[in-house]
């Protein structure tokens, strides 16, 4: 099965059909998706600002990362569920939209980066991590998540 036919199958699925047919289902899911984005933004920024030395300073990075983790994962799950529903309703449009592919690429990279490289840096003993390395990691994280958010917004623009 080619990628396009998979997208066509998604578009023709019952859920996609139902969302398309309803006047308010898409806006509602979209709005929840947006709230999830805001929450992810908060959870990511608390840790990244700490790494950059621009936010909280006295607490250990590891402690903050642990505090933010449930909210990050919770909102990520919410985003993926609502995002998949939105996707099902307009899969073909997404297939041909560059912003969709930009978003999926950044999303993949952001998730991998957050749960491998960044986790390793935040959980490591801070005396053994060079501050510069922490800042680079935080910047990459902010850039990748920004790509996800802005790419997502541009799927809506034709």
């Amino acid at each position: 099965m080619s990628l396009l036919s998979f997208f066509q199958w998604c578009e023709q699925s019952g859920i996609g059909e139902a969302i398309r047919r309803s006047a308010w289902l898409f806006p509602l899911i979209e709005a929840i998706h947006l709230l999830g984005l805001g929450l992810i933004g908060g959870a990511v920024l608390v840790v990244d600002l700490r790494l950059l030395g621009l936010g909280l300073r006295r607490q250990s990075v590891a402690q903050l990362a642990r505090d933010a983790q449930p909210w990050l994962i919770g909102s990520l799950v919410l985003m993926i569920i609502t995002g998949s529903l939105l996707f099902l309703s307009e899969a073909i449009k997404c297939y041909y939209h560059p912003a969709f592919w930009l978003k999926m690429t950044s999303l993949f990279l952001a998730i991998v980066f957050t749960f491998t490289v960044q986790r390793k840096v935040t959980m490591a003993d801070q005396t053994r991590v060079r501050p510069l390395w922490g800042k680079v990691v935080a910047l990459v994280s902010v850039l990748l998540w920004s790509g996800v958010g802005i790419g997502g917004r541009w799927i809506g623009f034709s």
Binding site: G38, I40, G41, G42, W71, R153
Partner: peptide
């Protein structure tokens, strides 16, 4: 501008929620 509005939403809303 709309994208900037959404980006700033993460900064404002996200941290306010935290």
């Amino acid at each position: 501008i709309e994208s900037i509005h959404v980006w700033a939403l993460c900064l404002f809303f996200g941290l306010a929620v935290m």
